[in-house]
Amino acid sequence: MDSLKATMLQAVSGMQLQSKRIDVSSQNVSNADTPGYRRKILSVEQAPTAADAFIATRVDLDETEGERLYDPASPLSDEEGYVTASNVSLVTEMADMREANRSYEANLNSFRQARSMYQSLLDILRR
């Protein structure tokens, strides 16, 4: 496989991974106020092939306990009157989203550059 095509495939793989990261973070943000919700974490591993730099393997749940709030009137409270809040930090999620967005843009720029070089090569061969 030529290097320009490999570069384009890696960039596409990177954009797909960053899209999944943004999706998981958006689910966490959406459920930040849901009592008992556990933050989702995307597990990423290096791909066995050169075409895919990294792949998302699975979504795990963060084992960190959420804050316990005293609210005996809540139907979700335990015997002692406490409700376990979600363990989602909006600051962490927004930082993760920003990082994923910038990584997506970097992969997109890499794809565009490889496409431009590929087009230039085709133009030279047509002459």
Rank of each mutant, 00 (worst) to 15 (best):
R126T: 05
M94F: 13
D60E: 12
Q46P: 10
E45D: 06
R58V: 04
A51C: 10
F54D: 01
N109G: 14
D96G: 11
S120C: 11
V91T: 15
D96N: 15
S30H: 00
G14H: 12
D52K: 08
L90C: 02
M97W: 01
M15W: 02
F111Q: 11
S25E: 00
M117C: 13
E79I: 09
D60T: 09
L42Q: 06
R68Y: 03
R102T: 08
L122Q: 14
M97F: 02
I124E: 08
A114N: 03
D71K: 00
V83A: 00
D60A: 13
D33F: 02
L9V: 10
R39T: 10
T57S: 13
R58M: 05
V88R: 04
S77C: 14
S74P: 12
T49W: 04
S120A: 15
A53W: 08
Q119K: 14
S26Y: 04
Y104R: 11
R127S: 13
E63C: 07
L9Q: 11
S74E: 10
L90Q: 00
S74Q: 09
N31G: 04
E63L: 06
V91H: 11
K5T: 15
S86I: 10
R39G: 08
M97E: 05
V24C: 14
Y118R: 12
D52R: 01
I41N: 13
L125M: 14
G36E: 04
A106E: 11
S30A: 15
S103V: 05
T49G: 13
V59L: 05
S86E: 13
L122I: 09
Q10W: 01
K40A: 15
S13V: 02
T84K: 06
L69V: 08
Y82W: 03
E99R: 07
M8D: 07
R21K: 13
D52V: 06
K5C: 11
D33Y: 06
I22A: 10
M15F: 03
T57L: 09
V44D: 00
E79N: 15
R38P: 07
T7D: 05
E45M: 04
R68D: 12
K20F: 01
L90A: 03
V88Y: 01
G14E: 05
R58T: 04
R102L: 11
A114K: 03
K40G: 06
S13M: 00
R115Y: 12
S13A: 14
V88D: 07
Q27V: 03
N28E: 00
V88F: 05
S116I: 06
P48A: 04
L76V: 06
M1F: 03
R21S: 08
V29D: 04
V29E: 08
R102H: 09
Q46C: 10
E45L: 01
S43Q: 13
S13P: 07
L122R: 06
I41H: 07
S25L: 03
R39H: 12
S77Y: 01
S26W: 00
S13Y: 01
S116C: 10
Y118S: 11
D60F: 03
N109Y: 13
S3D: 11
